[in-house]
Computed example of a mutant assay.
Amino acid sequence: MNHLPETGFLRLSQIIGNPDAEPPIPAIIPVKKSCWWAGVAAGRFPKPVKLGPRVTAWRVEDIRALIASV
């Protein structure tokens, strides 16, 4: 598993990965973007935090809890 920081925020590309990035970003939770957002809407995945008008992120603690619950 990827090394997650103890606290802070993760952007969506850090969670679901981005193979086109340079260097490629491996997925922590390997799902497509549409599946992730559907899971957020259904309550399967944690709700995001708006850090700015164009910046959405998730708390590391929430992602760790999601991984632990699987």
Rank of each mutant, 00 (worst) to 15 (best):
N18T: 04
A57V: 14
P23Y: 04
T56G: 05
E61G: 06
V70R: 13
I28S: 02
V60P: 02
H3S: 14
R44Q: 13
G17F: 02
V60L: 04
A57H: 01
I16C: 04
I29P: 01
V55F: 00
I63N: 05
I28P: 05
L12G: 02
I29A: 01
R11T: 13
I25F: 01
N18A: 09
A42Q: 14
L12E: 09
V31C: 12
P53V: 10
A68P: 00
V40P: 04
W36E: 08
L66V: 11
V55P: 00
G39E: 04
P53M: 09
E22R: 14
Q14V: 08
E22T: 15
S34T: 11
G17K: 03
E6Q: 12
P53R: 09
I16S: 06
Q14T: 05
N2I: 15
G52Y: 02
W58M: 13
G52T: 06
G52F: 00
K47I: 06
V40C: 08
E61K: 14
P5W: 05
G43S: 06
N2F: 00
I15H: 02
L51T: 12
R54C: 01
E61R: 13
G17P: 11
D20F: 03
M1P: 04
C35H: 12
P26D: 11
K32D: 06
E6V: 09
P48T: 12
L10S: 08
P48M: 09
G17A: 03
F9P: 00
G17T: 07
G8Q: 07
P24W: 08
A21L: 03
N2K: 13
R11V: 07
T56W: 01
P26M: 06
A41W: 02
Q14G: 10
P48I: 11
V49I: 14
V40K: 02
E22C: 07
P24N: 09
N2C: 04
F45N: 14
P53Q: 13
Q14S: 11
A57E: 00
P48A: 11
W36F: 14
W36S: 07
L4H: 07
A68Y: 00
P5A: 09
A68Q: 12
V31M: 06
L10G: 08
C35K: 10
V31N: 03
W37F: 12
P46S: 09
I16N: 07
K50W: 02
P19E: 05
K50H: 13
P5G: 10
F9Y: 15
G39W: 03
L51P: 09
A27V: 12
N18E: 15
A21G: 09
